[in-house]
Design a protein around this nucleic acid. Structure first.
Length: 423
RNA sequence: GGUGAGGUGGCUGAGUGGUCGAAAGCACAUCUUUGCUAAAGAUGCGUAGCCUUAACAGCUACCGAGGGUUCGAAUCCCUCCCUCACCGCCA
């Protein structure tokens, strides 16, 4: 959520930054400004009337104590109350409308975020390793996985539906060993605290991180309980501190969490993609940081480096791209995507998206920290996948496939997986 | 799921219709004094919004949440949520 004062006082800056995004928000900003003016004048009037009422009511109390007749003065207050109610309706309606508009407005891209309109304009930041070469035609993970009895798409479709999968045997074990490997890496080497959160959350959590109200069609919802299945651990983990005032000494707060992620992928063009690339449910280890505004950009770099470390240790070729203003997510101010090479696909797959949200989420969830001067401020929140599992599984299996269809397990994972090869 | 008790400021905890935004204690901050592995005293110390300002100040709202009664609600009524205890059930 943007600061209404920023919009009020630096309207041109706000409009200009938003103009770099995809979508047109100039008219929303204009409506916000007029609503804001109306809201404040109604609010001021209401407060003045409430002050009158409070004063007169006190006088009534005193007068009654002295045994005086107060009926005239009481009816005067009744009149004031009618006006309070009337003007209060206007004030409340304006307040609600303003909040709706603010919740529907995306974050300002940071000045460090490259300006561009489409994904084609995302600059490549760095490349690690090189595409591996094979003296045979590398196979797709679905072929490898099904041949080795690791992936059962039919069973997933049977018990749940398309874009759900059952991992079996070595496949299930590989998934589990990757989760353990990732959690151990981030908690013992990178200073994150492991958290294990509920997978169902309240609506207000999704509002806090920005999925609601605008992207409600993308999350699974249980109407009886009014609970939502988490689309990412970012939601429960960041909201751990919603409505809190944390101490500055606590920052940076760093969490690592493994959770499954549930996404409806409504209207998604790529849902027909074969295999594990785009599922309604997938595992992910998520990294979340809460930092001071001063530290957040440096923390984004370290967060991204923490995610990259995963791929380096597994020996997987990847590249890091920076999302341009036209391609960054709704709440993000700056984002790096990490894309791992999948030889069987012949493409790079996004396995991590590392973003600095600035104070955008903190405002939405009313998360603050008390600075050294005693003032409450909004901290910056960051998160990034460290990393998404299904696609990491794809890259791993496709990269380490052998001519005979077996998979070699990379060194770093062997202690977790328990053997060197899947036959 | 049932029954009972309860939800007040960072914490403990008073407060059952009228200067209560809320006593007191603890914690914390600043200052003073005595002096040195500390003690005493003074002052300050919630959040948000509005209106203003050079700054201070002022006003409004908030005592789990939302409604209601009333000239006036932390206090009375209704609904919901949460916590604790016991019972039931149970991975």
């Amino acid at each position: 959520m943007l600061d209404i004062r920023l919009i009020r006082e630096n309207t041109d800056l706000v409009k200009q930054r938003l103009a770099n995004r995809s979508g047109d928000y100039a008219s929303v900003v204009d409506e916000l400004l007029s609503i804001d003016t109306a809201r404040r004048s109604a609010e001021t009037e209401r407060q003045k009337l409430q002050g009158d009422r409070n004063r007169i009511s006190k006088d009534i109390g005193i007068a009654k104590k002295n045994g005086q007749d107060t009926s005239a003065i009481e009816s005067e207050v009744r009149g004031i109350n009618e006006r309070i109610e009337e003007i209060g309706r206007d004030a409340d309606a304006a307040d609600l409308r303003q909040r709706d508009l603010l919740l529907g407005l995306p974050n300002l891209p940071h000045e460090a975020c490259p300006v561009g309109h489409t994904a084609e304009e995302n600059p490549e930041v760095r490349v690690w390793g090189a595409k591996p070469s094979y003296d045979f035609e590398p196979k797709d993970h679905t072929i490898l996985g099904q041949a080795l009895g690791m992936l059962d798409f039919e069973a997933g479709a049977k018990i749940t539906g398309s874009a759900f999968v059952v991992y079996r045997g070595a496949g299930a074990r590989l998934e589990r060993s990757l989760i353990n490997f990732l959690l151990d890496l981030h908690t013992t080497q990178h200073g994150y605290q492991e958290v294990n959160t509920p997978h169902l959350v309240k609506a207000e959590c999704l509002v806090g991180t920005g999925q609601l109200p605008k992207f409600g069609d993308q999350v699974y919802h249980s109407p009886e309980d009014d609970l939502y299945l988490i689309p990412t651990a970012e939601v429960p983990v960041t909201n751990l501190h919603r409505d809190e005032i944390v101490k500055e000494e606590q920052l940076p707060i760093q969490y690592a969490a493994y959770t499954p992620c549930f996404r409806r992928e409504a209207g998604s063009a790529g849902l027909g993609t074969r295999g594990l690339i785009r599922m309604h449910q997938f595992d992910k280890v998520e990294l979340v940081k809460i930092t001071t505004p001063e530290a957040s950009m440096a923390e984004l770099e370290s967060l991204t480096a923490n995610a990259e470390k995963v791929l380096q240790l597994l020996g997987l070729h990847y590249r890091v791209i920076e999302l341009c203003t036209g391609d960054i997510g709704f709440g993000s101010a700056k984002t790096y995507d990490i894309e791992v090479w999948a030889p069987g696909q012949g493409t790079y797959l996004e396995v991590s998206s590392c973003s600095n949200f600035g104070d955008y989420q903190a405002r939405r969830m009313n998360l603050r920290y008390k600075g050294e001067d005693g003032k409450n401020r909004f901290p910056h929140t960051l998160n990034g996948s460290g990393t998404a599992l299904a696609r990491l599984f794809v890259a791993l299996v496709e990269t380490y496939q052998q001519a005979d269809g077996s998979i070699v397990i990379p060194e770093a994972l062997r202690g977790y997986f328990g053997s060197e090869k899947i036959l």
